[in-house]
């Protein structure tokens, strides 16, 4: 029997005044999997997740969370869904350990707070007030709070923002274990590495719409393109290189003497590139062939300009 998805969003629309934050977004998060919602800041990730959590109301479209309507069936959903907000949501004046124990009291059979404390390394600051915690300590406490009710589904909004590498590793390990235990995870992130490390499926969101979705491998392989990194002893001319390679390739300058090429890089393309450089009297110093990373896919889809 096929499991119904943990989260199903169809044609979601949310406006704030005149601006459209979510503009017909579709999203499916499979049961028991980690789904990463990846997008630049302001893409509509947080708004989408907050609508799924029942914190905001949609202006249009359909949202099902564990088969329920997040607003109408909120009472049934709250014990099943754990939430980590982007801004933490932790009471500043309380001690970390007290906050975790307090939230655990809302559940009939909460997780063992001692075990969570150890797992996430909270013990060293359990008696410190939330106000005095570092950003990373706060994130770990917020994650523990999201998990203390043994949820079926967790929404994690930017779970590793502000974490140092060790803490990030601990958080990633824990998220991996959650999905091993059959917990569905929906996380938002703008870190490619996080999506690549954790996600069974990635949904790339931009301007309030899902513009691509699939496994990391599917997204990276789409179009069969790979990347080529070129460095030379002399300054490189991206336009001339694109001309030498022919249609289907994009060449981006990466500094005066380096370029990156993406497109259907086959042996002929490598030869054409090398010949073009030789004709122009340029000495190759480095040639690196690589698969596209999720970052390349993301930047190709969402554009490279800052915003």
């Amino acid at each position: 029997m096929r499991h119904s998805p943990a989260v199903e969003v169809n044609g979601l629309v949310k406006r704030y005044g005149a601006s459209v934050a979510v503009d017909g977004l579709d999203l499916v998060a499979a049961s028991g999997q980690v789904t990463a919602v990846l997008g630049p800041n302001g893409a509509g990730k947080t708004t989408t997740v907050e609508i799924c959590e029942g914190l905001r109301r949609a202006d249009g479209g359909e949202v099902r969370v564990l088969g329920h309507d997040p607003v109408r069936d909120a009472t049934a959903l709250r014990p099943l869904v754990g939430v980590m907000l982007q801004d933490g949501g932790l009471p500043n004046t309380q001690r970390a350990g007290d906050v975790l124990r307090h939230v655990s009291r809302m559940y009939a059979e909460p997780a063992d707070t001692g075990e969570l404390t150890e797992r996430l390394g909270l013990a060293s600051f359990a008696r410190t007030s939330v106000r005095r915690l570092s950003g990373g300590q706060r994130q770990r406490l917020a994650l523990a709070v999201a998990l203390v009710g043994r949820p079926r589904l967790v929404f994690l909004d930017e779970p590793s923002a502000g974490l140092d590498p060790q803490a990030r590793r601990a958080v990633w390990d824990l998220i991996g274990e959650l999905s091993d235990d059959g917990v569905s995870v929906v996380l938002t992130t703008h870190f490619m590495a996080e999506a690549e490390a954790l996600a069974d499926r990635v949904v790339i969101v931009d301007h309030g719409r899902a513009i691509a979705a699939g496994t990391v491998a599917e997204l990276v392989d789409s179009g069969g393109t790979t990347t080529l990194r070129v460095e030379a002893a002399q300054p490189l001319d991206a336009a001339a290189m694109a001309l030498a390679l022919g249609p289907g390739f994009t060449v981006q300058s990466a500094g005066r003497t380096a370029c990156s090429v993406s497109g259907p890089v086959d042996p002929g393309a490598v030869a054409a590139l090398a010949r073009g450089l030789a004709d122009a009297g340029k000495q190759l110093t480095r040639l690196e062939l690589g698969r596209r990373t999720l970052e390349d896919v993301f930047l190709d889809l969402t554009g490279r300009s800052l915003r």
């Binding site: 119904s4 329920h68 009471p91 307090h102 809302m106 079926r152």
Partner: peptide, 30 residues
Amino acid sequence: MSETTVPGAPRAASVARRVAAQGTFEMRAV
């Protein structure tokens, strides 16, 4: 199929316990 009938699904504490816990938390904060 329906998630509401999954055995062993997490349950909320009773309303009285939740409200009492929040009340105690608020009082201690003051």
